[in-house]
Design a protein around this nucleic acid. Structure first.
Length: 291
DNA sequence: ATTGACCAAGTT
DNA sequence: AACTTGGTCAAT
């Protein structure tokens, strides 16, 4: 229900200090008053705090091996049981990994590393979750682990620009090309994927990882030069990675009656999804390899 | 829609 | 050790 915002927060820059969690919350960086992982399994995790709550945490600066939450005894704070991938925050991090969402990282005084502040909390910028795995922690119980890698400065800049972009507005074509290569999921592409329940419109496949689903939104008429396709629902379809690449590389094309040329099959179409058919024509003529 | 239990672990 | 908060989730 909370209104989570992803990416950088206006007026907060890397290195900014906060006296306590309440200040972090007031700034809009991390809403949870206590939990180290902010977010939920529906939208992902917009923010984490690295504050020594789990002994296995490893902070290398641009790379962090983070521990999921749960399994600790409320009173002693020691880990007394296995962690679960189903815990709200742990699942949220998986969703962030699958969707390539940026995560705000804040370091707290309780964790001891050369990157940790002596007191209070320091905002550390944006990271991506690039991997997750399971292992036995120092306390002998299963822990959920995540590899976080810092978003490059140029990408961070793009993330800031993204906010001001009128997504889906065809007047923003040029900028949209650059941004879309970097921002791995836009509001619109997410909507398309949700409409199809993350299943490929050609083969019906979805990739499911610990309950988080993955698919790709493909532009029929490519964005940017020289094609100048638009970023509208009528130019987007939901595909699995294989069919996405095949489509982009021209291995097959889609006819107006939704049958395929180049490979067997047809495109299934949701009743609430209207495709701009001229985009099929464009793709067939300019991208499809007809030989 | 509304509720109450449960979760996370920071703060005093 | 006690008290505290915002949010999620399941039950109503």
């Amino acid at each position: 229900m909370a209104d989570y915002q992803f990416g950088n927060i206006e007026n907060v820059k890397e290195g900014d200090k906060f006296v306590n969690r309440q200040a972090l919350r007031d700034a809009g960086i991390h809403l949870a008053p206590v939990a180290g992982i902010d977010g939920n399994p529906r939208v992902g995790a917009p923010s984490i705090v690295l504050n020594g709550g789990y002994v296995d945490d490893l902070d290398l600066g641009d790379e962090i091996i983070y521990t999921g939450h749960g399994g600790n005894d409320p009173s002693s704070k020691k880990q007394i049981k296995d962690q679960s991938w189903d815990a709200t925050g742990n699942k949220a991090l998986i969703v962030s990994e699958m969707q390539g969402l940026p995560i705000r990282v804040t370091r707290g005084f309780k964790h001891k590393s050369k990157f940790s502040p002596k007191e209070g909390y320091v905002y550390g910028g944006l990271y991506y979750v690039t991997d997750h795995f399971e292992e036995k922690g120092k306390n002998g119980f299963v822990i959920c682990r995540y590899k976080l890698e810092k978003v490059s400065p140029s990408e961070t800049w793009q993330n800031l620009v993204k906010k001001e972009l009128p997504l889906g507005n065809e007047n923003s074509k040029r900028i949209a090309t650059e941004v879309l290569r970097i921002v791995r999921d836009t509001k619109l592409s997410k909507e398309i994927k949700k409409l199809y329940n993350y299943e490929c419109q050609i083969c019906g496949t979805t990739i499911s990882v610990r309950g988080a689903r993955y698919a790709e939104a493909a532009h029929i008429k490519p964005l940017g030069k020289p094609h100048n396709g638009n970023d509208q629902p009528g130019n987007l379809i939901c595909l699995c990675p294989n069919h996405h690449v095949m489509f982009d590389k021209g291995v097959f094309a889609i006819e107006n009656d939704l049958s395929l040329v180049g490979i067997e099959g047809s495109l299934s179409l949701h009743k609430n999804h209207t495709i701009e058919k001229s985009n099929f024509d464009y793709h067939k003529e300019h991208i499809f390899i007809n030989e």
